[in-house]
Structures are given as C-alpha cells and as structure tokens.
Amino acid sequence: MNQAASESGGTGPSHRQVEIGVAGAMAILAVIGIYGSIQVGIGWGADGPRAGFFPFYVSLIVLISCAINIITVLMARETRKIFAEWSQLRQVLSVLVPTAIYVALVPYTGIYVASALLIAFFMRWFGRYGWLATVAVAVFVPVATFITFEMWFLVPLPKGPLETYLGY
C-alpha cells in the first residue's frame, strides 16, 4: 500500500531528508548521553566501571552508527523516493495533533473528561457519526473506565475539576 502510494506520483518530503533527520535526532540524543555520562564519571574505578561508563560508550556507539548511516544515505544514488505524500502526512498529523492536545489536557481536566473529548472528536471528525452515537460512546467509555479502575480495582487515575465537583 505504501509503495503503491509512493509510486502514484504525489509529492512529499524525500526519503533521504527524513533518513538524515532521524539519524541526526539520534545523534543529538547520543551527544546528550555523552555529556550526562561525563558528568557522573566514565572511568573504570578500582572495583569496576563507574556510573557513566556504560551510558558513555553506548552513546558513543550510537553517535558513530548515526554518522555511518548518514554517510550511507549521502553516498547512495539520488532517488526520487519520497517519505510519504503530503496528503498522507496530513492524515498522520490530523491524529497526532488531537492526541497531543489530549495528552496536554490530561493533567488539567483529568483523564476521563479528556478521553470523552478525544473519542467524540474522532467519531465526529473521521467517522461522521451522528451526535447521539458520538455522545453515547464518548460518555460510556470514560464512565466504564471510571467504574473499572477507580471503583473495582482501586487504581487512581488523574482526575480534574469535574470529579472533584462530584465529590470524588
């Protein structure tokens, strides 16, 4: 499916750029790891390695591998292969953005209210369900979750103003 889409002639970011981007991001993590390891000591003490020994070499290997991966990409013959079409990426973003908002909302509204909103959004936006079905599912799932987690299994999940208002 993926190949088919790539060959259908749409435009999008090139696979090459993304490859380099991913390797670059990993390299940044590796540099952070190296820096953090040096802070706690990367030596080999009298009784074995210090706290930073493993993370240091591990990060170093990541850095080297990333360099090799970037070089491999650069050496390879220029291809027209694209990472994904813009329309596909828009699809991905249309899930990612609401989910990011959801994750950001959880600490403030509690997980139940945020979940109801997320489910309602998905069903209306992508599923084009009627309001009745949307509201039914969006309310039922968090309530069932609340009963299962908070009441039966006594697992406290993040709660917000609504739950406080209800006395929980």
Binding site: V95, T99, Y102, V106, I119, F122, Y129, P142, L157
Partner: peptide, 26 residues
Amino acid sequence: SVIAPIIMVFCAIGAYTVHNNTFDVV
C-alpha cells in the same frame, strides 16, 4: 474511527499507571 481513540485512551491509562505520572503519558 471508534476503536482508534479508545486504544489511545487505554494506551494513555497504561502509560500513566506505570508510575502514576502524567509526564509518562507525554
């Protein structure tokens, strides 16, 4: 479009309960 958000919700719950920490959801 119904199951995807529900999976997301349960993923978030699963991530949260590991350490009871909303940062983990992020």
